[in-house]
Amino acid sequence: MPVKLYDTRAFTEKFMPSSALRLLFKGDLTRFFIVRVEDIYRHVKHAVPASRSATHCCLYLTEGTASMKIGSAAYTIRQGEMLFVPAGQIFSFREGEVNKGYLCHFHPDVLIGKFGQSGLLQEFGFLQVWGYPHIIPDRQTAAFISQLFGRILFYYEERGLKNLNIIQSCLITLLCEANRAYQPAPGAGSGSAVSITNRFRALVFSHIKTRHRVADYAAMLNITPNHLNKTVRSVTGKTPSRWIDESIVMEAKVLLYQTELSIGEIAAETGLEDPSYFSRLFRKYEGMTPVQFRKMIEKS
């Protein structure tokens, strides 16, 4: 049974009471919303385990620090910095952090319309699953971005998505400012190596439930498994097989959290026919069995 992406309303309702939702958000949450981070923290008091949304997500801080796990990598941002979570990507964050800023969710379709076009989605590397999500603008650009977030929030609070045209134009400008500051992952290596690695990661994202062999991905990229192994390792510090294993485990964590599927059904959903092997793989990377992980979620 395939798992659907969380729509944004379902995600927010899981962590926030409906009365708070009515106060903070206006209009169709599956398309767009923006809120001050400090306002969300008044209602959300616990960590968010591995989850995914059908919308892009952007976090920008004006004070403090924030940590988030995106895919299998952990990031910490500070004042004037941003984190992007592409639509469909798996993310989680911990509780207890004190910070201020803006949190914005927007469906990819929001960038298409009166002032946007589908090609915009390809312009921003940070909205791709292979992109580097941590944006560190210079001081002047950070000031522009902060002003744009403030204006988007003003127009959203004023009339919700009835102001979509002006919200869209401000959002596109904001993303263009972020794109000026965008840098690939530190130490990413040569252009050719980065290109192969990005394509590999995109393929893993799309085929993780059916393809688990490095040789399969090498064939799709028309290179040898040895070349793929050396390239991905030089760019990311991890082997292709580790990327594949970690992606399987991340898919499993979402299924354990968002569904009531049995462990055997989750193993099958991730493309592993042997539940025992699945449990061993999960424990290798998480330090606990899938059953223990689910019990931990239920207690939280």
Rank of each mutant, 00 (worst) to 15 (best):
F93A: 09
I248Y: 10
N226V: 07
L228T: 00
A54G: 13
F126G: 02
F106G: 06
V129C: 12
S53P: 00
V3W: 11
K230I: 13
F11M: 02
I152Q: 01
E246V: 11
L203Y: 03
G287K: 09
T210Y: 08
G64S: 12
R233I: 08
D109H: 07
C170P: 02
L23D: 05
H56I: 14
I34M: 06
D216M: 03
S169E: 15
L171S: 01
C104K: 07
A252F: 13
S146C: 15
V3C: 04
Y277D: 09
L111V: 07
V98G: 04
E157F: 15
E13I: 03
R42E: 15
I167W: 01
W130H: 15
H207G: 03
S190Y: 02
S146D: 15
I172T: 01
S118L: 10
N179E: 09
S195H: 03
E298A: 06
S195I: 00
T12Q: 09
V194E: 08
N165M: 14
Y75F: 15
L127G: 02
I223P: 06
A66P: 01
T270I: 11
S19N: 05
R294A: 02
I112L: 05
K26D: 06
A66R: 10
S279R: 14
T62C: 08
S118N: 13
H212Y: 07
L221S: 01
R180Q: 04
C104P: 03
K45N: 06
E260N: 14
D216N: 05
A74G: 11
S169V: 12
L174K: 01
Y285A: 08
Q89H: 09
R9P: 00
K14D: 06
E97Y: 12
C170A: 12
F205T: 03
R139S: 11
Q147M: 11
V44Q: 12
L29I: 01
E260Q: 14
A87H: 07
S206G: 08
Y277F: 15
F93E: 01
A219Y: 14
T259F: 10
E269Y: 07
L127A: 06
R36C: 03
S234F: 05
I167C: 06
Y182D: 04
Q147V: 08
Q147T: 09
C170I: 07
P290N: 08
M220T: 02
N163W: 10
A54S: 09
F84R: 02
L21C: 10
M16G: 06
R159K: 14
Y155R: 13
I77Q: 02
A50D: 06
L174D: 00
V194L: 13
Q79M: 05
I172L: 06
H56E: 15
L171K: 00
G80K: 00
Y155F: 13
G113A: 03
V204W: 04
R294M: 04
V249S: 14
